[in-house]
Design a protein around this nucleic acid. Structure first.
Lengths: 163, 163
DNA sequence: AGGTTCTCGTTGAATCTTCAACTATCGGCC
DNA sequence: GGCCGATAGTTGAAGATTCAACGAGAACCT
């Protein structure tokens, strides 16, 4: 294209095909999983993910910042998401004893129930549209790649705050 | 968990690790690439993708529906995105001659320039945070997986309208 | 103590996306 | 020609996410 383009490391056609497949595939996949959760369980993907983290946490509760880091969403976003979940009665907020600024999100019994109901739907979607389509080796490769990507982006973006 | 859970094909721990790495990694990656484009070139990822498609198209123009399909966004979304790009002077709309309902999006010279400027930034990001981190074989695997995912989700979602 | 600086989490507005409803045109059919 | 269902694209409001600014408490330093 321009003069400087000769110095730029463009993607070769095959790499470009893979990159675009990833972009489009991810869009379609997230869209689909989100839609299934919404229609069948009235939950969005981000909400679902947060419920999962909380349900696995010690004492079913997590500090907002830890929660935000664990899903890699901004703190503001988590605040809003938790607010929605709280309105739905699936989560409650509790002041943090050890830190006056702190807030803990706690999944309620109803939250656990909602998650239990939604989980099979979700997992089946992940299987049908991703895991079972990929060979085991390819799926392992995917895991390796994105573990590396995550490491790189976490350490490149110093410390906690995603933003 | 519940009784029926014994019949459900959950993900084994390693699969779960990969799935979550993909989720988190994708979040971080898209976030990062979007931010770089925005800060350095005042473009979002979806806007960038659309400019790319248009720039590659015959005569630099595409029907809205074709464009929407090619990036796998809803038509409404593309309408809004194009409206923004039009406001920025990077794209124009033109009535379609062969079909009275049709609208073609055409990338302007300014649009081509903007894309030319942004492309090196973007490609470098894709390389630094994904392509160059993955071994060639792993990256190929990623391409295979998402080509399959895309095929499955396109055919599963009969015909054009993504939603 | 007092002051400074940092982190925690929230807030409300701006931006982007989704959703449902709508207009207009096309295409087939009678 | 005229009707009828399907398709193209838009619209505006509702919903979700980002962004910048903020208040409150912690941590540190003297």
């Amino acid at each position: 294209m321009t003069d400087e383009s000769s110095e730029i490391a463009w993607l070769d056609p095959e790499q470009q095909r893979s990159w675009r497949a990833y972009l489009v595939g991810t869009t379609l996949l997230m869209d689909r999983l989100d839609r299934e959760l919404r229609e069948q369980h009235n939950l969005s993907m981000p909400e679902y993910e947060i419920l999962v983290r909380l349900s696995e946490a010690e004492d079913r509760r997590m500090r907002m910042a830890v929660l935000a880091d664990s899903v890699s969403h901004s703190r503001s976003r988590v605040t809003h998401t938790i607010a929605r979940l709280e309105r739905a009665g699936l989560v409650e907020r509790a002041a943090c004893m050890s830190d006056g600024r702190g807030v803990e999100a706690v999944i309620t019994d109803r939250g656990v129930d909602a998650l239990r109901e939604a989980a099979p739907t979700h997992v089946s979607g992940v299987r049908r549209f991703l895991v079972d389509l990929a060979g085991d080796d390819d799926f392992d490769a995917l895991g390796r790649v994105f573990n590396t990507v995550t490491d790189k982006l976490i350490s490149a973006n110093p410390a906690a705050d995603i933003r």
